[in-house]
Design a protein around this nucleic acid. Structure first.
Length: 642
DNA sequence: ATAGGGTTAG
């Protein structure tokens, strides 16, 4: 509708300018008197412009100028639209030359269009040059530049221009605010702008609102984002997408899905952007069945790379590699994100060799790896114990791909060396890092100490973690257990005292399982699930049956207890065991049991799951915060190396 | 003439 009415308006303008005797605006002093062919020439020029026939339009313009006839701002702007539609940079520059060699000073209107043209061609410097030479700059001129810098990620520049604009006494409008909002990189700037907008009464515009929601949530201020959203009486699709996206990106998948339901009840239809965020929410919650449902809706749209990438990630993170692989095969267009997602997905699910093979294919396909791709590659090496390969990729990433190793890359290699028992080398890598090691780095080293029972280094790493992240309950518990194991009771008491003092409590182990698109949560020691009694009975039967085929519950996991779950026989009721039993009870016998956990799996549950998978002929997939375990026929895809 | 929402790791 909108395009049609715009077109009609344009036609009217051209007709009206042709019906009157044509006079260029302003009159060029050297203009020759009109001759009969002039109006025909202009007519031709305008038509070529509307047909987006750039070469002919350019020729027509040259012919007109030979007759001393000059286009006006509106016809020039049509010609520039032509150049933009054809992505014709050189012709655009030529038009610019014509405009400024016309012998008159072009109007602000036309100069704004030229600035915008250079912005669209991503020639910011040229845009800036035109802007600088303008005798007058209005709100559109300023907004064009602010938006250009904000889009290019040059936030400081955008904010600087906003201030300059105010200083020159030009009043911002809602276009300006929605542009400058995107350049806010600190919460104080944002609040300042927000209150400024309220003062001038522009904060209720939907564009401004969606930008506000987006920026608040990108700055981790979800409460403010929700506040802005709730205050709105009339919302449009983009506003809904902003809040759903904000929630999904801040790992509040539950709430994102709730808002999605509300959006549909309000009568809106999801588009690609909505579905991408919904998929991201499913990914975080490992909701494979809901994700599949979304996939059906995805098929209604034209191929959309971002949406396909989100879908691919959902299948990987829900542990359904078969779906991920077949989608990846079907995708005709793949970008660096598609490849990186698939590589990391294979690696996290325990298929490291396949991940590395895919990395070779990626390079062969001509796609350049980025920072994140290499993280996936190194992750694959560390989780398969491929020390030599990992070290090679790490040491050559700068030379081969021009990527400087960052904290995450170091983390993978520290993990790689640490797991392989090379704790000294891992430690020297920590010292080699040019960026400061953070809590995650030390936790990686601590993980290696746990596996290789290095108590001294474990204590050292744990202390480092607590300096950087004093509220990390898991580390307190681990440290206390290490001391207990070495009979250092005074230290144990001290740790417990610190925990009490700081009010630090252990996060309980929790597992989730999706049955009939419903999530069931199991928390250690929690009896809220309606079927908990029968689940406990079945679990006991199962444990005794497994003991008959050689299962010995392993309570000695002092250096493993990242669980925060207790050391006595409560490990018999670890949340993943409850979820497995519930899965056996409620899912049809052929289907896989997929579980998501908030904490890493312990050694005992790992053994348990392997045996259950074998005895019950089931595929069991458990996703923990770091990686996945596929249990089948008595073995796990991690090769007992995690 | 100028403006808003979506994908990989951690």
């Amino acid at each position: 509708m909108k395009t049609v009415s715009t077109k009609l308006k344009q036609v009217r303008i051209s007709l009206s300018s042709l019906s009157r005797p044509y006079s260029p605006t302003p009159l060029a002093s050297h203009a020759k008197p009109r001759n009969p062919s002039s109006s025909a020439l202009l007519n031709e020029f305008v038509n070529f412009c509307y047909q987006r026939d750039l070469p002919r339009a350019m020729k027509a313009m040259a012919a007109m100028e030979r007759h001393g006839l000059y286009a006006d701002s509106i016809t020039y702007s049509e010609l520039i639209k032509c150049c933009l539609a054809r992505n014709a940079v050189e012709q655009g520059r030529l038009v610019h030359k014509h405009v400024s060699s016309n012998g008159y000073q072009p109007k602000t209107f036309l100069l704004n269009i030229l600035v915008n043209m250079y912005v669209k061609f991503k020639l910011l410097q040229e845009a800036q040059d035109v802007f600088d030479q303008m005798p007058e700059r209005n709100v559109v001129s300023w907004t064009t530049m602010i938006s250009a810098y904000a889009n290019a990620g040059l936030s400081d520049k955008a904010l600087e221009f906003f201030v300059l604009m105010l200083r020159e006494g030009v009043l911002p409008n809602m276009f300006t605010f929605s542009s400058v909002l995107r350049a806010c990189n600190g919460i104080s700037h944002l609040r300042q702008l927000h209150s400024g907008m309220i003062k001038v009464g522009l904060e209720s515009d939907v564009f401004v609102r969606s930008a506000l929601i987006d920026v608040y949530s990108k700055l981790d201020e979800l409460r403010d984002a929700i506040c802005v959203f709730d205050e709105m009486e009339t919302k449009d699709l983009v506003v809904w997408n902003s809040i759903i996206g904000g929630l999904a990106q801040n790992s509040d998948g539950d709430e994102a899905l709730n808002q999605f339901k509300r959006m549909k009840r309000a009568g809106f239809t999801a588009d690609q952007s909505t579905l991408t965020s919904v998929l991201r929410a499913c990914t975080g919650l490992a909701l494979l069945e809901v994700g599949r449902q979304v996939h059906v809706h995805v098929l209604k749209f034209d191929v959309d790379l971002i949406l396909n990438n989100a879908l691919l990630d959902m299948y990987c993170k829900s542990g359904s590699l078969e779906d991920a692989k077949s989608l990846f095969e079907l995708m005709v267009h793949k970008d660096v994100i598609s490849w990186s997602t698939m590589i990391a997905g294979l690696a996290q699910n325990g298929f490291s060799q396949e991940a590395l093979k895919l990395f070779d294919l990626m390079k062969a396909s001509g796609t350049k790896p980025n920072y994140i791709t290499i993280i996936g590659v190194l992750f694959a090496c560390s989780h398969a114990g491929l020390v030599d390969d990992g070290m090679f990729y790490f040491r050559s990433m700068k030379r081969l791909y021009g990527i400087d190793p960052g904290r995450e890359h170091y983390g993978c290699v520290i993990d790689l060396l640490g797991r392989a028992g090379k704790l000294d080398e891992a430690m020297s890598l920590v010292q080699e890092m040019e960026c400061e090691p953070d809590a995650v780095t030390w936790r990686t080293l601590l993980g290696a100490c746990r596996v290789h029972r290095n108590v001294d280094l474990a204590i050292y790493a744990a202390k480092k973690i607590l300096q950087l992240d004093p509220a990390d309950a898991g580390t307190y518990v681990l440290l206390s257990n290490i001391y207990a194991n070495s009979q250092r009771w005074e230290d144990v008491t001290e740790i417990r005292r610190q925990m009490r003092e700081k009010g630090i409590t252990k996060e309980p182990g929790c597992s989730w399982i999706e049955v009939n698109k419903q999530i069931h949560a199991f928390i250690l020691g929690d009896t809220a699930h309606p079927k908990i009694n029968i689940i406990n009975r079945r679990l006991n039967q199962l444990i005794h049956k497994l003991m008959g085929i050689g299962y010995v519950p392993d309570t000695n996991f002092v250096l493993q207890d990242l669980e925060g779950e207790q050391r006595d026989d409560s490990l018999w009721y670890h949340s993943e065991k409850l979820a497995i039993v519930f899965g056996l009870m409620s899912l049809s016998s052929g289907s896989a049991i997929r579980i998501r956990k908030n904490l890493r799996i312990c050694g005992d549950c790992h053994t348990f799951a392997k045996l259950v998978a074998k005895m019950e002929c089931r595929l069991i997939v458990i996703r923990d915060p770091v990686r996945y375990h596929h249990f089948q026929n008595g073995v796990c895809s991690c090769g007992d190396y995690w």
